[in-house]
């Protein structure tokens, strides 16, 4: 698994719960080190072990934890660069939704060996969508529920999201867009590069 993904989990724990909690996770997962390197590749078995350890140490249900990580990735100021990259997907939340199919390819353009879950958006009605996620890590649907929730907030859209469960490794999230311009949303200037 790519170091960027492992490191994202690390940063979530450190930024939300503090470095001592992360150190405890690293011990529980038997990592043998504390810091993940963003640009290294780690054994695939490590990531599920780390997630299980986080769930244990923080005493949070796994699915809830995944959703929290998703929300964190978009909304925490320390990861502003990631939010910006996602906002390049579209000017409106609906455009952003339609850009999700391309997300794994976009990620690969930036970091050639980064593999993200495969995503597919289906349109069921004027404001009714569903997103299917197929990934190596269980719960990636919950993670994207968190991402979508935070991105909707970012665009100022009002949405209702629901994880519809998993079948044959495919997780489905239903998306109901209640109002596209519900709130102001956060600004996005093309030229303002995140540090």
């Amino acid at each position: 698994m790519h170091g960027l993904i492992n490191r994202a989990i690390q940063r979530f724990v450190v930024d939300s719960y503090g470095a001592p909690q992360w150190a405890a996770v690293a011990r529980r997962a038997d990592l043998g080190f504390v810091e993940f390197e963003a640009m290294w590749t780690y054994d695939d078995a490590i990531t599920p072990r780390v997630l299980a350890a986080v769930s244990d140490i923080l005493d949070r249900p796994y699915d809830e934890l995944m959703e929290d990580i998703g929300t964190y990735l978009v909304s925490h100021p320390n990861l502003e660069a990631l939010r910006r990259l996602l906002r390049f997907g579209g000017v409106t939340f609906v455009e952003f939704l339609h850009s999700l199919d391309d997300l794994p390819d976009r990620a690969r353009l930036a970091v050639a060996d980064l593999t993200l879950p495969r995503l597919e958006l289906r349109e069921h009605g004027p404001h009714q969508y569903s997103l299917t996620c197929v990934g190596d890590i269980p719960g990636c649907g919950h993670l994207f529920t968190g991402v979508l929730r935070a991105m909707a907030d970012d665009y100022g859209a009002l949405v209702f999201l629901e994880h519809r469960g998993e079948a044959d490794g495919v997780e489905t999230v239903s998306i109901a867009l209640l109002e596209a311009d519900y709130a102001e949303g956060r600004g996005f200037e093309l030229g303002a590069q995140a540090s």
């Binding site: 640009m39 660069a81 910006r84 990259l85 390049f88 976009r106 353009l109 930036a110 970091v111 093309l190 590069q193 995140a194």
Partner: peptide, 11 residues
């Protein structure tokens, strides 16, 4: 292109 510039800079 702007996306790529930012993504590459971050990487």
């Amino acid at each position: 292109m702007l996306y790529l510039v930012e993504a590459k800079s971050a990487a």
